[in-house]
Structure formats: C-alpha cells, structure tokens
C-alpha cells in the first residue's frame, strides 16, 4: 500500500505555522541523532532534552495548523506526509551535526534568534500563538544558555577546540541571513517580525563570542531558499529517515 503525500493549500497563517513547526522538528531531529553518540553521558541527556523540547514545540504548532486548516489532518500528516519541497524550515537547521562544536554553534545561532522571537510573539493577539510562544520561550532560554556555555568553553578551551568552533562559525554563518527574512505582510500585527530582532541577536552573539575568544564572521553571501522549499542536499536524507516508517507502514501504531 502506498502512502500519498499531502499538499497543503496554505493561507499565510498556515504557511507561517508550518515553517516555524518545521524549524523545530528538523532541529529536534538533528539533535536526536546524537543519541548514543554524544561525547559525555551528561551531554547525551542534554542534547536529547533539547531535542524533545523542540519536537514538543513542533507538535504544538502542527496541531494548531491542523485546527486552522480544518481539513481533518493531524500533526503527523504534516510531519510525515509532506515532501521535501513542502518543508519550509531554515537551511541552517538541516545542516548536519558535524562535530560537537558545529552542533553547539548551530544551536547558539538559532537560539539567540528564536528566544527573543518567542518573547516578542508572546504579545500576539492570537491567544494560541501567544501561549505556544510563552511555553517555548522558557525552553529556548535554556537552550541559549546551554549552547552559550559550551561555545565559550570550546572557543576559550584548547587550540583544537578553538579551531573547531571557529570553523563551525565560518561554515554556518552564510545560513544566518535567512533567520531575518520578513514575514508575509498579511501577518503584520499578528506575529513578530524577524528583521526587528537582528540587533538583539548580534548583541547576544557578540557577548558570547567575545567571551569565547572567537571572531564573528563578516556578512558576505547569504544562503536562502529554505522558506520556499529549496533545500540543501541534506534535508532529503534527513526526511528519508524521519518519514520512512510511517510511509512504509501506513497507520502503524505502537
């Protein structure tokens, strides 16, 4: 029996919910890949905890999307039955884990943005969005703290850890432009607008990187396309693993 992929006729709000949910799901899945492979048992738990926070956020957003779409779909349909081109997550978040430094730098770059973003969204006139933001902000605040502390220690650690952290920063920097893409004009007043958060993001990073003795890369060519479904070569492989089971055994339950 074949599973058919679904196509969502997205209103601006639905598209918004799905892309923010995709961000959380894809990064959460990436963190789950550390299970059994983390450098310390303590960090194994920390990575899994953060991953579960993110998957929880994805569920809340997909759930609200299902409610707003009103087509009888569930959170699972959005996660498991959309094709790669229908995913609107940031390219930054689908980048491979690399070494531990790359994982932590990716977490820092995203958390330094999404934490103030959730805080701004807490004042949304949409009560459900405001509630999701309030819950998520507590989680992202911890992710930011955890990633910051590790980046500081890696940057200001040994020559090897410094080199790896700086290399991760240079590698991922071109993916940070996409964080600040403006939202659809139809959503003005309803959701926070990313361009207004750039200054706060840079300030957080400057503080952490200075303590880490790392150099903030200069803004050059910025990658984009994730929001429109034009992904790097990595997302397809990630989705193959993420979606394999429900697509191979439709309706499978525990």
């Amino acid at each position: 029996m074949a599973t058919t992929s679904i196509t969502v006729q997205a209103t601006p709000l639905l598209a918004y919910l799905l892309k923010r949910a995709d961000d959380a799901l894809i990064l959460g899945h990436r963190l789950s890949e550390w299970c059994g492979a983390a450098p310390l048992m303590e960090e194994e738990m920390a990575l899994a905890n953060m991953g579960l926070d993110l998957i929880g956020q994805a569920r809340a957003l997909y759930g609200y999307a299902a409610e707003r779409e009103g087509a009888g779909r569930t959170e699972d349909d959005y996660a498991y039955r959309r094709d790669e081109r229908a995913f609107g997550n940031l390219l930054l978040l689908e980048q491979p884990n690399g070494d531990f430094a790359q994982t932590m730098v990716r977490q820092l770059l995203y958390s330094a943005f999404i934490d103030p973003y959730w805080r701004a969204l807490m004042t949304s006139p949409d009560a459900t969005l405001a509630a999701i933001a309030a819950k998520s902000e507590k989680e992202s605040a911890y992710h930011l703290r955890h990633a910051s502390e590790w980046v500081i220690r890696l940057g200001d650690g040994t020559a090897e850890s410094h080199r790896r952290a700086q290399a991760a920063l240079e590698r991922l920097w071109p993916y940070t432009g996409e964080l600040f893409a403006p939202e659809d004009e139809a959503l003005v007043g309803l959701v926070a607008n990313p361009p207004t958060l750039r200054a706060a993001w840079r300030e957080t990073l400057s503080r952490v990187l200075a303590q880490a003795t790392l150099t903030m890369p200069t803004d050059g060519w910025m990658q984009s396309g994730g929001r429109a479904g034009a992904h790097s070569e990595h997302l397809g492989h990630l989705l193959a693993e993420l979606q394999y089971l429900p697509r191979t055994y439709p309706g499978a339950v525990w």
Partner: peptide, 20 residues
C-alpha cells in the same frame, strides 16, 4: 552524582539528568 568540567556545566547537567 555526575561528571562535568566546571560548576556551571555541572549545574546544567544536574538539571538535565535529575530534574526531567
């Protein structure tokens, strides 16, 4: 008990291991 390189990370690891 747990392993951590310093007090700050020990506190974070304690949160992640023991208060889930």
């Amino acid at each position: 008990s747990l392993h951590a390189p310093d007090a700050t990370l020990a506190l974070q690891a304690a949160r992640d291991l023991f208060t889930r």
